[in-house]
Amino acid sequence: MIRLENVEKVYRTDRIETIALSNVSLDVAEGEFVSIMGPSGSGKSTLLHVMGLLDAPTKGSVTLNGRKVESYFDAALAKVRNAELGFVFQTFHLVPDLSVLDNVEVPLLYRGTGGKERRKRAEAALERVGLSARTRHYPSQLSGGQQQRVAIARAIVGAPRILLADEPTGNLDSATGDDVLDLLKDLNTRERCTVVMVTHDERQAAKTHRTVRLFDGRPVS
């Protein structure tokens, strides 16, 4: 499903060269739930961004569903992100001036889905995360856990095959974090959605199929 081969990511400024990922090779199979762990600055988020085609590797190749994507231009990358990937972030990244329903609709806007169909699918996604009663609310009117559920609804509204979650429970208390993790697990189990999750929490990582550990940008066993 996702294959990274000898991926290297180097950030260069005028004076400093920072190696964020070094020689990372990784395979994620369809339907897997993989967690990525490691100390701060170990390259977890960078790895997730490279997998999510938000960042291009300096070296190495990324293959998604059998297609090498390094030759893709902006429009093609955006299309893949829209159709095949769903993102969940630690800080939710909800647009504060849009209602819950409008926030969930965002990915469908870039797919050219009609207004009625968008609404229908956004409502279904919100029902799936247990927030169908909050469609008219604004993010500021919701708790952290509810906001993350909205973000998950937005990530799944386009029925992507891969969910990439960057510390989805990092801003939540443990009980709420467990609820969110259960939701991701449920999506993985019932909808065969491949999930890659960055986490600091060993307890949560233990609930996934496999854990990839990073240290200084390199995978460690």
């Binding site: 938000l54 429009a75 955006a78 299309k79 972030f89 965002v106 386009g158």
Partner: peptide, 16 residues
């Protein structure tokens, strides 16, 4: 900026 990042992540092109 963060909203722009989110839109790009959900499928917006630079042109969008």
């Amino acid at each position: 900026t963060r909203e722009i990042g989110l839109r790009r992540a959900t499928g917006a092109t630079a042109r969008h």
